[in-house]
Simulated scan of single mutants.
Amino acid sequence: MTILVTGATGRVGQQIVEQLLQRNMDVRVLTRSPSKVSFSKMVEVVKGDLLNIDSLREAMTGIRTLFLLNAVTGDEFTQALITLNIAKEVGVDRVVYLSVFDAEKAVNVPHFTVKYGAERMLKEQGFSATILRPAYFIDNDVRVKEVIFNNEVYPIPIGGKGIAMIDVTDIAEIAALELIRRDQAETTLPVETLNLVGPDTLSGTDIAAIWSEELGKTIKYGGDDPSGFESYMETIMPKWSAYEMRLMAERYVGYGMVPQAGDTEHLTKLLGRPLKSYRDFVKNLINNERVIFEDRL
């Protein structure tokens, strides 16, 4: 049957759609701006959003499987619960939900706690769901590349306990595989939670060392104090959101995002290939920057 993908114009959602199309699945997306969608004509597009009840009902008509992604916004929790309530109402009972690593533990970080609330609804309302709990997205670091290149500092407070960062393409492929498995199951499958992690658990100094090795010059780790990171984030996002990023960074420093036994092995088996590494990301980013520089000459 057709699978509905929300958040389809974002980094993860776009790639999930492509992964589903590669596997010959029928895909529908819900978006505020259909004119900005550049998917294949095979993708059915419904205009609307997660607070528009009529558009939600329209988007969910004739499907049974949903990919739910909520952006980090002030009304994220309302969006999640409204969407799941409408899904329940119209009989969409198979869900893959993008949550966050250790969602139940970071009680002071708004979007962690919000996602844990949505997880509880999935479990208590009888959905057949896969809950994906990704660690830090590797490609988030595109946002700080200029600081690294120009100031020779890795500025994100990661701390010393380590984070098993994961590549967005790995997240998208795992999500697509789970959507298909849920959609094609002949019986209701139990709720499952997957920690989505990368192959290496890296500290802030580890990450700075990788940049140093790949750039051929010393890149320093900016340290565990989140103040400078928060100030930088205020230049590219609303102040409340930058403060939330600070709270998240404090979580990294205090607790890390360390895989449980068997997490990486399970994901590798699921994908049938190795997980992409942070070093791979750095190499690709540096190579792309060199190509851009050469093109300008």
Rank of each mutant, 00 (worst) to 15 (best):
V114R: 10
V114C: 07
Y116T: 00
G117V: 06
E119R: 00
M121Q: 14
M121T: 14
K123Y: 05
E124L: 10
E124Q: 12
S128I: 03
S128Q: 05
A129K: 00
L132F: 14
P134W: 05
Y136G: 06
I138G: 00
D139L: 12
N140A: 03
D141R: 10
V142D: 12
R143V: 02
V144T: 09
K145T: 09
I148A: 08
F149Q: 08
F149T: 03
E152S: 15
V153S: 02
V153A: 03
P155E: 13
P157M: 09
K161Y: 11
G162P: 00
A164H: 08
M165A: 12
M165Y: 15
D170Y: 04
D170G: 08
D170M: 01
I171A: 03
I174P: 00
A176M: 12
L177Y: 01
L177F: 06
L177I: 10
E178F: 03
L179W: 05
L179E: 04
R181C: 05
R181S: 12
D183W: 02
D183F: 04
A185G: 13
A185L: 10
E186P: 07
E186R: 11
E186L: 14
T188H: 10
L189Y: 09
P190C: 12
T193A: 10
L196C: 00
V197P: 04
V197A: 12
G198K: 09
P199M: 04
P199A: 10
T201D: 01
G204M: 00
A208N: 04
A209P: 01
W211V: 11
S212L: 02
S212A: 06
S212V: 05
E214L: 02
L215Q: 01
L215I: 01
L215M: 01
I219H: 04
K220T: 13
K220H: 08
Y221L: 07
Y221V: 09
G222E: 01
G223D: 07
D225W: 00
F229P: 02
E230H: 04
M237F: 11
P238E: 13
P238G: 13
K239E: 04
W240Y: 12
S241T: 15
S241W: 11
Y243F: 07
M245D: 04
M245K: 14
R246H: 08
R246P: 01
A249Q: 05
